[in-house]
Design a protein around this nucleic acid. Structure first.
Length: 800
RNA sequence: GCGGGCGUGGCGGAACUGGCAGACGCGCCAGACUUAGGAUCUGGUGGUUACCCCGUGCAGGUUCGAUUCCUGUCGCCCGCACCA
């Protein structure tokens, strides 16, 4: 039978559409399964071969769940706001909406060609005003709850995109998107208080089925640390507060360091005798980009603040104060006590500036290197702490600090608040106005969505303001509260806004009264299985967990964690093992593969290529193996005769169903396919198969290669769609063998194989083994020391 | 530096809680059918090969038995990066 994949695929895709086969049912009494893949950014390049890997994987999961009787929600949509579209629009003078529409159309037809069982009736688009109405609504709730605030602050600013970036968007000191230098710029920005959720974002992970590397990466990013804050009195008559995780080493603090941006530099101006020098250092630090700052890690720099000294509260000694950019303004209090004997950075700095190093934890040689071990050392030179171990000394010191009112226990996080405004056009307008009398006021919810106005130019202004700032008619408005003169916020939201809640909209995408109905959210949420890229672990995944927790707190969402399970796929690399990119010239176009081999072959190959979680290089040669398999599968139609079972195949088929069922659940798609290939090989060896059996095989194949499966199923007279057929059951009693082959080892080396009954006793097995001619010969002149029999596994005879 | 992961044939990769290393596929070799084959089918395919033997980055260890567990070491990938 000719495998005419083009007509087969067209035919079945049409039939699925006509039957609305993959639309989630509105019946909330059915058992539900919500499987989700990250919705793509519809770029101008079209689909990449990397996209179908996670999509096909979760399509397989969804298809199987559907066949197992679940009401499955497997939706798709478009995360369509963003810079590339805007940049394209600027360059080609086309409205970003038109560009987006075009890209979406292309993506959609490409995804449809792959036979993915998305519920297209729930398609969403973040740039649709009916969608971003609710993105804006959530922002207003955050604003009302005090979690959105505007702050004048030093932000990351991309010199090329002319836009503010979140910490998460700065990679190695350069812009994640364009690779240009990122500098610090003081701007007034909308911020979201994600830090208020830092603790819950860590603790919430414990009950979730996330792959371990996602959990640890999020925990590290949030960076919880326990320590203490301590006040140091100064000769200026005030006190300087520091944060430390090693309050036990307070007696060893021989100097202090504050960040260049620390407010005390200005406060102490009159007292400082070398203010010019300090100012110069400050200016230099400000000019450095993040990249330069990290480049200069090796060499510590700094300037002493001459004229003010601090007093160590533990021993009353006067110590100097420095400014240095190795202390960060944004973490802790922006000031530290330096304990060179027990901190590597302080040690380096002390060596360079000739500062005293006092050992307060015995166990190392502090003249050679900082001794940072907290397990073995004992306190010394520390008055009332002497002789204690580090942990005990910490507790005692905190007690001391609190009793004397000079400090307290304190928890800090690395996580920063989320910089939420962008000086760009193609994003959700921030639905706030600034009234001359009332300050910032949210626009009334019934006026949402606040739509993007039409502008003449999408380019940011030279001074880095949003293009919307030039639209004076739009900007000038009246205050919703007092009716007075007001101006609209002209910044837009970052791309991450729309994707922070999109999985909720899928539950009820056409709702005009709420982001989704409470009933729909209660039924569908949380997402049962969410797969996406590792690159989103500290961005989208964290942000969307934050928003979910917030929506839970304001009683909009019934669960406080949005995803029950999170997995991540490996990248598809180019033929040469490198990341696919235009510049490397190793990009594979999925359209070509679908055209030359068919969607089913493409799907199979993407799943067969290797471990789902591991990166794998594309190999154009290997694809044909998958196509051959499908051809061989279809050719079984010529062989299939009669009904019932074939004795030689019965066990194999039962085992296959068992393996494929469990392999899909544990995302071992590659071995599931290998097992199906082996099954077909067995059928060809045996030379016969019944029509019933082939129908079963088609059913098992259908999540992987749905078009071929439908075709075979229909030809065999199967009723309805195999995509909606019942997933086959297997008979456990028919999965095992009555007899098994057991290898016989002598001193751990295989010397023969015996066939034994499944229920044979150890003695019987051993008897059989020894009766084997080869084994008997090998044992002839040896003394048996030990005999090991593991039924079903192995026989090992140890001899001398 | 810290955190996570990975080293298995010519290639992608299999191997359940330690139990016949190399499933499945690609490639390659031989044969069949063919005017032809980059189509299809059959057989073979870790090294050396009659056997023995050697083989999961390297060196040790635990064990009757180690790709799997432990120690050390080398190499690669990813994430974070002066977070006090």
């Amino acid at each position: 039978m000719l495998y005419d994949y083009k007509s087969i695929e067209k035919k079945w895709q049409q039939r699925w559409d006509d039957a609305h086969a993959f639309e989630a049912k509105q019946d909330f009494t059915l058992p539900k399964y919500y499987s989700l893949v990250e919705f793509p950014y519809p770029s101008g390049q079209g689909l990449h071969v990397g996209h179908p890997r996670p999509y096909t994987a979760l399509d397989i999961v969804s298809r199987k769940k559907r066949m197992q009787g679940y009401n499955v929600l497997f939706p798709m949509g478009w995360d369509a706001f963003g810079l590339p579209t805007e940049n394209y629009a600027i360059k080609n003078k086309i409205h970003p909406r038109i560009v987006t529409e075009r890209n979406v159309a292309r993506f959609k037809s490409q995804l449809k060609a792959l036979g993915l069982s998305f519920d297209w009736s729930r398609e969403i688009n973040t740039t649709d005003p009916d969608y971003y109405k609710w993105t804006q609504w959530i922002f207003i709730q955050l604003f009302k709850e005090g979690l959105a605030y505007k702050k004048e602050m030093a932000v990351n600013f991309c010199t090329s995109c002319k836009v503010v970036l979140a910490n998460e968007e700065v990679v190695n000191g350069v812009c994640e998107r364009c690779g240009s230098a990122v500098i610090r710029k003081v701007k007034s920005q909308w911020m979201l208080k994600i830090t208020e959720y830092a603790d819950r974002l860590i603790s919430g992970l414990s009950g979730l089925d996330f792959i371990e590397r996602v959990k640890t990466q999020q925990i590290n990013w949030i960076g919880k640390s326990k320590g203490a804050e301590i006040d140091f009195k100064t000769t200026a008559g005030d006190s300087l507060r520091v944060y430390t995780t090693r309050c036990d080493t307070l007696f060893g603090a021989t100097y202090m360091v504050i960040a260049p941006e620390h407010e005390y530099v200005a406060k102490w101006k009159e007292l400082l005798t070398n203010y010019d020098e300090i100012e110069a250092y400050k200016a230099l630090a400000a000019k450095k980009s993040d990249f330069e700052r990290t480049e200069l890690v090796k060499e510590k720099t700094g300037v002493e603040l001459k004229g003010v000294r601090a007093i160590n509260p533990a021993n009353g000694k006067e110590i100097p104060i420095f400014i240095s950019d190795y202390v960060l303004a944004g973490y802790g209090t922006g000031a530290i006590m330096a304990v060179p004997a027990h901190d590597e950075r302080d040690w380096e700095f002390a060596k360079k500036f000739g500062l005293p190093i006092i050992e307060v934890v015995a166990g190392g040689n502090v003249e050679e290197a900082a001794f940072t071990d907290v397990e073995t050392g004992k306190l010394c030179n520390s008055g009332f702490l002497d002789g204690l171990e580090v942990e005990d000394a910490k507790a005692k010191m905190i007690e001391f600090l609190e009793q004397n009112g000079i400090g307290n226990e304190r928890v800090n996080f690395k996580l920063r608040d989320w910089v939420f405004s962008r000086q760009r056009y193609w994003g959700e307008p921030i639905p706030l106005v600034e009234c001359e009398k009332c300050g910032w006021v949210a626009i009334p919810e019934e006026q949402l969505p606040l739509t993007l106005p039409e502008v003449d130019s999408y380019e940011p202004t030279e001074n880095g303001e949003s293009p919307l700032s030039l639209m004076t008619d739009w900007v000038n408005c009246s205050c919703p509260r007092c009716g007075g003169r007001a101006k609209r916020e002209t910044d837009t939201m970052p791309q991450w806004a729309g994707s922070s809640w999109y999985f909720l909209r899928y539950c009820d995408p056409h709702n005009t009264e709420a982001l989704a109905s409470p009933e729909a959210l209660k039924y569908w949420m949380p997402v049962d299985w969410y797969n996406g890229g590792m690159e989103h672990t500290t961005l989208h995944l964290l942000y969307s967990r934050f928003w979910s927790k917030f929506l839970y707190d304001i009683k909009t969402l019934p669960c406080d964690e949005p995803y029950a399970k999170r997995t991540s796929h490996g990248m598809i690399l180019g033929e040469n093992g490198e990341k696919m990119s235009k510049s490397r010239g190793n990009v594979v176009n999925p359209d070509d593969i679908v055209n030359d081999y068919g969607a089913d072959t493409m799907r199979l190959y993407e799943m067969f290529i290797g471990d789902f979680e591991q990166a794998a290089p594309w190999n154009p040669q290997s694809i044909k193996g998958c196509k051959r398999f499908l051809e061989r599968f279809m050719n079984l139609l010529d062989m299939a005769k009669g009904e019932g079972t074939t004795p030689e195949l019965e066990k194999h088929i039962n085992k296959l169903i068992k393996k494929v069922t469990s392999d899909i659940d544990s995302m071992k798609f590659n071995t599931a396919i290998a097992a199906m290939m082996a099954m077909i090989n067995t059928v060809y060896e045996v030379g016969k198969i019944t029509r019933d059996e082939l129908k079963t095989l088609a059913t098992v194949l259908s999540p992987f290669a749905p078009h071929v499966a439908e075709e075979v199923y229909e030809t065999l007279g199967g009723k309805g769609l195999v995509s909606l057929a019942k997933w086959p059951e297997y008979d456990e009693s028919k999965c095992g063998d009555d007899v098994c082959e057991m290898p016989v080892q002598i001193n751990g080396k295989v010397r023969g194989v015996v066939t034994v009954d499944k229920n044979a006793s150890k003695d019987d097995i051993l008897g059989l083994a020894k009766a084997d001619a080869k084994i008997a010969a090998a044992l002839a002149d040896k003394t048996v020391v030990k005999e090991i029999v593991v039924p079903g596994k192995i026989i090992n005879i140890v001899v001398k």
